[in-house]
């Protein structure tokens, strides 16, 4: 192998340079500009996965069972969500659609997780604010906010029926899960969550 070939092969592993002109491709091979609604949604799903990874690390440090196991699954699931979103319903082959189909079972799993954690939490009486809750909880609140952004961006696709309902419902439930998870992590951290009492006043 010549020196030039060797270099080229090494480089092509990470940077293919095919996106240098501002386009990228979906799972079905279709190329679109990077500011397309699909890439906005995919980017935010990616961002959510990254923040979930940070939250997971903090849960591991805090030894917050069973959140560790749940978050490990969710970080991986973000790739499935991404794959599903990256396969538009209107112009993808049946083989692609079949491969990236998102099961509605995950929604039920989330609901089960929400219920199991929620039953251990005190009832909510106020708008809560992520203050003095520990890093795991703070990052889960951050993840919740990003999850909502992902959901908003996915609505731009779902109103045109470009992505399946299951995945939108999943994201709606995921933000609920992250809200409960954030409270759960705070409780595990031994912190009382702050709450809002109106016009800039805090209660603790």
């Amino acid at each position: 192998m010549s020196e030039e070939q060797e270099t080229r092969e090494y480089h092509s592993k990470i940077y293919t340079k095919t996106g240098d002109k501002g386009t990228s491709s979906l799972y079905n091979g279709e190329r679109r500009t990077k500011n397309d609604a699909f890439f906005h949604a995919l980017g935010t799903i990616d961002e959510l996965g990254a923040v979930l990874g940070v939250a997971l690390e903090h849960c591991i440090l805090d030894k917050t069972d069973p959140l560790i196991e749940m978050l490990e699954k969710l970080v991986a699931l973000m790739l499935d969500v991404g794959a599903c979103v990256a396969t538009p319903l209107d112009n993808s082959k049946e083989t692609h659609l079949k491969k990236t189909r998102f099961s509605d079972n995950y929604v039920k799993v989330l609901e089960k997780w929400i219920d199991s954690m929620d039953s251990q939490l005190p009832p909510l009486k106020h708008f809560i604010i992520p203050i003095r809750v520990g890093l795991a909880s703070a990052h889960l609140h951050q993840a919740r906010a990003i999850c909502r952004r992902a959901e908003r961006e996915m609505v731009s696709l779902s109103i045109h029926e470009l992505i399946p309902t299951e995945v939108s419902v999943f994201m709606n439930r995921l933000s609920d899960f992250l809200f409960v998870a954030a409270r759960f992590a705070a409780k595990n951290h031994g912190a009382d969550e702050g709450y809002w009492t109106g016009c800039g006043k805090t209660g603790l």
Binding site: I129, P130, V133, L135, A138
Partner: peptide
């Protein structure tokens, strides 16, 4: 607000 929560921790 979520980011402020993280920063404050």
């Amino acid at each position: 607000s979520a980011h402020i929560g993280v920063a404050k921790e």
